[in-house]
Design a protein around this nucleic acid. Structure first.
Length: 500
RNA sequence: GGGGCUAUCGUCUAGGGGUCAGGACACCGCCCUUUCACGGCGGUAACACGGGUUCAAAUCCCGUUAGCCCUACCA
C-alpha cells in the first residue's frame, strides 16, 4: 500500500471537523451542487465543526461576480449557512481566518507552493507546445496505446530531454510517483486502488506570461493547497472527483500534509437516468424556489437521495419517520448510511414532502415564504384574516398552489360557461338571504346555513356550490364558511348582486 | 482504447448466506365528504444476465451487459 497517508480515512480527533463546498461560479447554482453542499453542511453541523464556502474561479472565461452572487443567494435561500467564506454582495470581503475564499485572490499562495515544489524537484517546467503534444498524443493513440506525458509509452520524452529553450515561457508539471497503487480510502465508496502508472505528470500551472513566470494554477492543484491551508478534515464532494483524488494524494504528500478523509457522494440523475440537465426541468435552485417549495422541503428531499437515515440502526419505516426535521437530520446524518450509487431525482417525493411540511408548519412560519406569491393587497389584511387564509389552504402541494387557491379573495371573478348549472332558480332565493347575513363567525354561518337549507329544502352541496361559483367564478374553493369569511360581507353582497 | 465507480418494485431504498424480499413516494381501488383537496383502509409491483462456491445465494467469488466518471495548459 504505497502512497497512502497515515491519517487518510480518519481525521485527527484533535482537530475540529471542517468541510467545504467549492463551486465554480460558471452559471446557476445546480441542484446537484446544492445536494453536495447539503451533505457537507449536515456533516459539519453533526460534528459541531465548521463549514466553508469557497469559490473556485480559476476558469477566467466563465467566472463572474454575478455568478458568485447567484451561488451565495442560492445557498442562503436553502438555509445552508457557512461559517467561513465570501460575504454576500461584497466581492472583496470575507469572514473566517483562512481567506480570501476566492481562488483568484489566492494566487500568491499557489505560486509560493509551486515554487517550493520546483525547488525540491517535485515539479518541473514543461515547454512542449500544445500542437506538438497533440501530435504525440494522436501518434501514440493511433498505435492503440495510451498517451501519458512522460510516462508509459511516452516515457523519457519529457522536456528535459526534448531540449526546449529555457527562455520560453513554461507550464509546470507535477512529478507523479511511478509504480504501485495509489489507494483512495473513501468513506462512502470504500477503498479504491488506482495503478500509479495509469496517471501521468499532470499540469499544475498553465503556461506563464514569460520565462520563469508561473501561470494560473489548475483546479487539481488549487484544491489541495486550499484544503490543506483551510484545514479541511473531510473532503465531501461529487463522485465525479473520485478519479481526481489519486492525482491529488501525491500532492498532499509532497507538501508534507496529512490527508483529509474523502467521501465521494453519488450524483443526482434525471428521472430517465441520464445526467440531470435542463431538459429534465428544473436544475437551478432558483427554479425550485419559484415553484413554491419550502427550503426545508428541498433540504429533506435532497438529503434523502442517497442517504437513508437510521434510527437506532434501523432505516426509517414510516411516512411519519420520513419527515425529518433539520435537527433530526443533523443528529442522524452519517456518511456510513450513504448509498454508493447515483439516484434519480424524484419530483413526486419532493412535492409530497413539501405538502407535508406545509401542513405541519404554523401559519406564521409559512407567511414569509408565501408572501412573494401573493398580491400586494395581502399586507393590508388583518392578522386574523391572514391566519385564516393560510390555514384553510395548507392542504396545497406548494406555496404557489396556496396562493392560487386564494386569488378569489383578491379578485372579483369572471363568470364562466356552465355557471347556471350551479346557480339554479331553486337556490337563488337562498342566495338572496345569504346577501343579508352579518354574523360571519364560523358558528354563525353554520347556524344560518342550517336554517336556510331547511327552509328552502336544499342540500348543503347545492348552496355551497352555487356560492362558490358566484363568489369565486369556479366550483372550487376552501370550505364554504372560510370562503365567505375571506371574501367578507360587503364583497359577498356585491359579488352576489349580479346573479339576483 | 486505458483506468475507476455503479446495479433490489416505475422512483428513493431496507435487507449482506435460510425473510411470504420490508418501508416510503407514485399508481390503482374502497371509505369519508359542502367542491377541490386532506385523511383512513386495502392492492398491484423488484433482487440486470451468466457461471461458480454452498445443503442453501438478492446476499460471497468470477465473468458479461448497461449507465456514469476520469483520461484538458475545464472545474
Amino acid at each position: 500500500m504505497r502512497h497512502t497517508g497515515r491519517l487518510q480515512g480518519k481525521a485527527p480527533m484533535t482537530r475540529p471537523i471542517v468541510t467545504r463546498f467549492a463551486p465554480s461560479p460558471t452559471g446557476m447554482l445546480h441542484i446537484g451542487g446544492v445536494r453536495t453542499a447539503l451533505f457537507c453542511w449536515l456533516f459539519a453541523r453533526r460534528h459541531g465543526g465548521r463549514f466553508i464556502l469557497r469559490i473556485e474561479d480559476t476558469d477566467l472565461s466563465r467566472s463572474t461576480d454575478d455568478n458568485i452572487r447567484i451561488i451565495e443567494e442560492g445557498m442562503a435561500w436553502c438555509g445552508l449557512d457557512w461559517d467561513e467564506g465570501p460575504v454576500v454582495g461584497d466581492p472583496s470581503a470575507w469572514t473566517g481566518p483562512h481567506g480570501p475564499y476566492r481562488q483568484m485572490q489566492r494566487m500568491d499562495r499557489y505560486r509560493a507552493r509551486i515554487q517550493d515544489l520546483l525547488d525540491q524537484g517535485l515539479a518541473y517546467r514543461c515547454r512542449c507546445d500544445r500542437e506538438a503534444l497533440a501530435l504525440r498524443r494522436t501518434a501514440v493513440e493511433k498505435a492503440g496505446k495510451v498517451f501519458q506525458y512522460n510516462r508509459g509509452l511516452d516515457a523519457g520524452k519529457g522536456c528535459a530531454e526534448a531540449g526546449h529553450d529555457a527562455s520560453q515561457a513554461a507550464a509546470i508539471r507535477f512529478r507523479m510517483p511511478v509504480g504501485g497503487d495509489i489507494v483512495v480510502r473513501d468513506l462512502i465508496k470504500g477503498d479504491t486502488r488506482f495503478p500509479a502508472d495509469s496517471l501521468d505528470d499532470w499540469i499544475i500551472a498553465r503556461t506563464g506570461d514569460g520565462p520563469g513566470e508561473i501561470g494560473v494554477p489548475t483546479y487539481n492543484f488549487c484544491v489541495v493547497v486550499d484544503d490543506t491551508q483551510m484545514e479541511v478534515t473531510h473532503v465531501i464532494r461529487g463522485d465525479d472527483h473520485l478519479n481526481n483524488t489519486p492525482k491529488q494524494i501525491p500532492l498532499f504528500e509532497a507538501f508534507g500534509y496529512d490527508l483529509p478523509a474523502f467521501a465521494h457522494v453519488p450524483m443526482i440523475l434525471g428521472a430517465d437516468g441520464a445526467k440531470l440537465s435542463k431538459r429534465h426541468g428544473a436544475t437551478s435552485i432558483t427554479e425550485y424556489q419559484a415553484m413554491g417549495l419550502l427550503p426545508s422541503a428541498v433540504r429533506l428531499a435532497l438529503a434523502r437521495l442517497s442517504w437513508t437515515p437510521k434510527i437506532d440502526g434501523k432505516a426509517v419505516e414510516s411516512a411519519e419517520e420520513e419527515l425529518l426535521t433539520d435537527a433530526q437530520m443533523i443528529q442522524l446524518f452519517d456518511l456510513d448510511d450513504c448509498q454508493k450509487s447515483a439516484a434519480r431525482f424524484d419530483m413526486d417525493k419532493l412535492q409530497w414532502i413539501n405538502q407535508k411540511l406545509i401542513q405541519r408548519s404554523p401559519w406564521q412560519e409559512l407567511e414569509p415564504h408565501l408572501r412573494p406569491f401573493l398580491p400586494a393587497a395581502w399586507a393590508e389584511k388583518p392578522k386574523a384574516w391572514r391566519a385564516r387564509a393560510i390555514q384553510c389552504t395548507q392542504k396545497g402541494k406548494s406555496l404557489k398552489d396556496m396562493a392560487e387557491a386564494l386569488t378569489f379573495a383578491f379578485v372579483r371573478p369572471e363568470t364562466f360557461e356552465g355557471a347556471e348549472k350551479f346557480l339554479t332558480p331553486l337556490v337563488l332565493p337562498a342566495l338572496r338571504e345569504v346577501r343579508a347575513l352579518t354574523d360571519y363567525s364560523h358558528e354563525g354561518l353554520e347556524a344560518a346555513f342550517t336554517d336556510l337549507l331547511a327552509r328552502h329544502g336544499l342540500k348543503t352541496k347545492d348552496l355551497a356550490q352555487a356560492l362558490r361559483v358566484a363568489l369565486c367564478g369556479k366550483p372550487v374553493s376552501p370550505g364554504i364558511y372560510d370562503t365567505l369569511l375571506l371574501v367578507g360581507p360587503e364583497e359577498v353582497a356585491a359579488r352576489l348582486a349580479r346573479w339576483l
